[in-house]
């Protein structure tokens, strides 16, 4: 038995959003009497952190604390339209829609505050702690709660805003095939180290080293988490997960639950290190691109290349099972 070490890398360019038939998302925002700003979305946060990121986008645009932002992901019967949470589009599409809505709401907020302060709205600014104040005269200020109370009960105005981001459908040029299928692309490179046991055929992923160019990491902790959580998913795709050999013809022998569907547990995870690079996209919310899906992609070819480097077996079908590695080794020895 010999343990063979190998190293491989893979690079990925990954589109943010999609093109089929146009790709829109909408956001609505309105102020409550108590100085809160409610963002209504149909978009779904299925755990990736969308609500956190859109709250950040709204707070930054409004000039108000995060605590004043309430994200209501409503439902698709009643909320403003969203294409959905997929295609690595959430942060980009919905973030842009929220920024547009927040800008409109901010304009009304400043107009209401201007009326109360007997000033010109153009001369006002937000201080980020909940006050609207006169530029150059910070003692002339009004708290957002008083602004929204005045809007509701004195001035009779809604402090609200509408936002939409639409990536328009784009057709290829017939002569050249040229087209604009996505809004921007994020880039990544992953280096994988593996150890292959030439007797059992088991490939163990020892480490993943990731570099991701994400446009702008709106929330650096969540961006890093996405890279490494996705990296774990990539390892799982590469050497664990399979519905073979009987799916979908028969479920008699295939995995049917968490116990039988093989994915790596805490004892099987590789060491990971990650670097986030920022080259803001001109059309992204504060420059952000989408990195949702791509994080599970780069590890797979990197691991395949590392297995090739370790033992000379070139695999092109996932998962890279002990059986496929042993068959490859047999073929090399033949």
């Amino acid at each position: 038995m010999t343990l063979l070490r190998g190293r491989g890398y893979a690079s990925v360019n990954y589109p943010t959003g999609m093109n089929l038939g146009g790709d829109p998302s909408q956001a609505l925002i309105h102020a409550t009497t108590m100085g809160g700003f409610v963002i209504s979305l149909s978009s779904v946060d299925l755990g990736q952190g969308l609500k956190t990121v859109v709250a950040q986008c709204a707070a930054e645009t409004l000039g108000m604390p995060m605590a004043n932002v309430i994200v209501d992901t409503a439902d698709t019967d009643t909320g403003p339209h969203c294409m959905g949470t997929f295609a690595s589009r959430g942060t980009h599409r919905i973030g842009n829609a929220v920024i547009m809505a927040a800008r409109e709401a901010r304009d009304v907020m400043l107009a209401v505050a201007a009326e109360e302060l007997e000033a010109d709205a153009d001369d006002l600014e937000t201080d980020g702690t909940g006050f609207v104040r006169l530029k150059g005269s910070p003692e002339t200020k009004i708290h957002i709660q008083d602004v929204t109370l005045a809007a509701h009960f004195k001035q009779g105005r809604t402090i609200s805003g509408r936002g939409i981001y639409l990536k328009e459908r784009n057709y290829p040029v017939p002569e050249t095939g040229e087209m604009d299928p996505d809004s921007c692309q994020a880039h990544a490179c992953t280096v994988a180290e593996v150890e292959v046991d030439d007797e059992t055929g088991v490939a163990t992923v020892l480490s993943l080293h990731n570099a991701y160019e994400v446009g702008r990491a709106l929330n650096p902790a969540m961006a890093a988490q996405q890279v490494e959580g996705g990296g774990w998913m990539g390892v799982s795709h590469a050497v664990f997960e399979s519905t073979e050999p009987y799916y979908p013809a028969s479920r008699d022998h295939g995995p049917v639950d968490f116990c039988e569907y093989l994915m790596p547990g805490p004892a099987e995870i590789p060491v990971q290190s990650s670097v986030i690079l920022e080259r803001p996209a001109s059309n992204g919310p504060f420059g952000a691109k989408g990195i949702g899906e791509m994080t599970a992609n780069a590890p797979i070819p990197a691991i395949a290349n590392a297995i090739f480097d370790a033992c000379g077996v070139r695999l092109t079908t996932m998962p890279f099972t002990p059986e496929s590695i042993l068959r490859g080794l047999d073929a090399l020895r033949a």
Binding site: G47, Q225, E228, G229, G231, W232, M233, F258, P264, G265, P266, A267, I269, Q272
Partner: peptide, 15 residues
Amino acid sequence: NEAISGNVCRCTGYE
């Protein structure tokens, strides 16, 4: 690792 081996996480990669 052993103590949390009965707890499934699908986001973080466990680390």
